[in-house]
Amino acid sequence: MPGFFKNKVFWSGVMALVATLILINMTSSERENITLLERILRDTYAPLQSRVTEMRDYLSGPRSIFIQKQELSERIAELEEEIARLNLSNQILRENEEEIKRLRSIINFRDNNLDKYELLAARVIARSPNNWFQSIIIDKGSIDGIEKNMPVITSKGLVGRVGSISQHTAQVNLITDREIAVGATLQRSRETSGVVEGMVEGNLLKMINIPYYASVKPNDIVITSGLSEVFPKGIDIGVIYQVTEEPNGLLLSATVVPTVNFSKLEEVMVITDFWPVSEETEAELPALAEE
């Protein structure tokens, strides 16, 4: 028998390894609550991380003063042009919104518009310290009414959902994380209900489960389908970049460029009052419409 089998250090190592593997297994699925130790660690870091973020914002202020005047003038002109264009499209959208409201009231359809939700603004104070998990820490926690699985967005689109929460902070798992899957549909064709998931590294997404006959092409906008029960319907996720055929030939997959720039996230909004439509209610909707 080899000598190391009699070695106490060897057996301590084996026991530590087994205990750690059990711990990995226990924490691999979503947990309702984080442990006291994790909470203390997170809340200890939070004020320090907030200071660094504030300092960074403060230091980036003077730098912007030195931006060329001409560059600023060009940017103002561009923005004015964009405002004029957006004003016009706003008028059309307002009209459409009123029409939709009228039609929905006729068929007793559940209002799913984003503007009806309560939004809580939060600052990003830290990011995941490694490349394996894509998450951010925000400066709002259980004390501010944040709960697990609340959707997180910006004005550009979907960011992710709340994972673990401490008293003053919350960890938001980004949609680029490989553990997050979002029910998605294509805004143009509406015929596809796929799933968008994070890729292992980088800031790209992958849309899977697209039937081979689906009309999908680059630059199509991908939005939430509302079927994942965590995210409201109609939030922008990204834009199709490339479509590829899966080896089985029955399905397509697509690389999606997110509308949100995750490496430059500074502020986000948490939807605090989204209650997903249950499957039973969803099933009743066509019947209600017919009535």
């Binding site: 390894l17 593997l21 924490t27 691999s28 994790e38 660690l41 998450s135 994972g163 673990s164």
Partner: peptide, 13 residues
């Protein structure tokens, strides 16, 4: 791992 809160122990090993 404790800071990340998921798969606790993976980085430890």
């Amino acid at each position: 791992d404790l800071y990340l809160g998921r798969f606790i122990g993976i980085n430890a090993i």
